[in-house]
Amino acid sequence: MISILERVKTALGPEMAGPGLAFVAVVLVFGIASPQFLSAATFGSVAFQLPELGLLTLAMLLPILTGGLNLAITFTANIAGLTVAWVLRENGGVDAGIGIFIAGCLLALMVGAASGVVMGLVIAFTRAHPILVSLSMMIFLRGLGEFLTRGGDISGFPAFMGPIGHGSIAGIPVPLIVFIACVLGWHVLLGRTKLGFNTYMIGSNLEATRYSGINTRKAIVLVYTLSGVMCAIAGIIMLARFNSVRIGHGESYLLITVLACFLGGVNPFGGFGRVIPVFVALVVLQLLSSGLNLIGANQHLATAVWGILLVGVMILRWVASRIKISIVRRGS
């Protein structure tokens, strides 16, 4: 029994404490404050809102684990969405077939990957700071997108795309299924593959990792490439959900994804952090905004509360470390 608990504990890791606590607190507070909170409606709204932010957060997670950051995620997603839109429009618009759509998606994934490859190469070979590289990539992609769309919306897509954004399979929204599949994919990637292993090691000490015979450049390029691919998936989901593409859509998610990672216990300097706690953190954030919605607040207040939540969790971590120190002292 104890060994199972121990195993669960090591599987969840120390990162779980923050988001886990926040989860319980949010459910308790809103459960008491609003009788409708613990209902299928809340689940429904969370389930539909979670994937967009969630997929982008997954895209942000990998670079943060290597000690970097990818500030280009939202615009990479936009450009990927734009790619699908362009392929569809060039091939019949509303009447385009499903084959065209799939081709568009593949091209979009490649576009996302390309943005990641460029960033990865620059970061790996010049050792430029990832914040700066991804920032300039973000400015570039935003400019590119605005140039291509002239700042407007692009819409008019085939009807079969609706279910991808709004449909459900066995009661579970399709975007959520895609998201959960990606979460599991990332979980396996980080926990069970060489690339995941190397990601953590690079995040803690790049040079020592290189001395250990790891191709750190390849790993960094792959990390940013995968991040770009994940952005593209997010972009496709966003396209299907809104039935339109606009450059700048989801822009406000950018810093929220970073917030979600930190809330999920990811070390801001890299090297430590797991997918499942980040997933829980994302659920907490969405529950918070749904709960606030129920008691009449809007998304902006929810944004502020997200910020307060992160500060709160950080202060609690500080208090916990203080208590730990004082216990050790007293124990002597």
């Binding site: 810093l255 929220i256 970073v258 917030l259 930190f262 801001p268 300097f269 607040a297 809007n298 902006h300 207040l301 929810a302 944004t303 502020a304 509360v305 997200w306 910020g307 307060i308 992160l310 500060v311 950080m314 202060i315 500080w318």
Partner: peptide, 23 residues
Amino acid sequence: RFRIISIVATISTFNIYFGLLMF
């Protein structure tokens, strides 16, 4: 006071300031 790393602290306050302002 709470030894929060500056990027974490300021991303929080970014959301707090902006959220409250818009609210």
